[in-house]
């Protein structure tokens, strides 16, 4: 049986802006993926726990609060510690180019800025497994 790509969309920290996360969740569903949305206000520990139990292929963080330089590295570190080094970490939000570049050197696979076409996100994810 062919298993669809499974994606965890997570909102870490206190930032409550979940419009983008929900739109992306819907779009990935429509692109044929199985999407788990964590809901708001997740600690990095909760996110990694969910990624582990659900055995997702991709973890995607949505951060608009400016705390991305704290939260991405923390999630990545916990993923590595939990044996999820082979799971892709991507993300989106209000993240300046300079920070995005730095995050990519730390193992974040891709950062999508505001206004990204959701089909581009779906294609990118599919490309990871092609």
């Amino acid at each position: 049986m062919k298993k669809p790509i499974k994606v965890l969309i997570a909102k870490p920290g206190l930032d409550g802006h979940d419009r983008g996360a929900k739109v992306v969740a819907n779009a990935l569903r429509d692109a044929g993926m199985e999407v788990i949305y964590t809901g708001l206000h997740q600690t990095p520990e909760m996110i990694v726990e969910a990624a582990l139990q659900e055995d997702v292929d991709v973890v995607s963080l949505s951060i608009l609060s400016g705390a991305h330089m704290t939260l991405f590295p923390r999630v990545k570190q916990l993923m590595d510690q939990s044996g999820l080094g082979d799971v892709y970490l991507i993300g989106g939000g209000i993240i300046p180019e300079k920070d995005a570049k730095q995050l990519k050197t730390m193992g974040v696979k891709e950062i999508f800025g505001p206004g990204t076409d959701t089909t581009a996100i779906a294609e990118f994810i599919r490309g990871l497994f092609a």
């Binding site: 669809p4 990935l28 044929g32 199985e34």
Partner: peptide, 12 residues
């Protein structure tokens, strides 16, 4: 049934 995708919303 259209896309084969799913939103798994129970966990939340």
């Amino acid at each position: 049934p259209f896309s084969g995708g799913a939103l798994l919303g129970d966990r939340i």
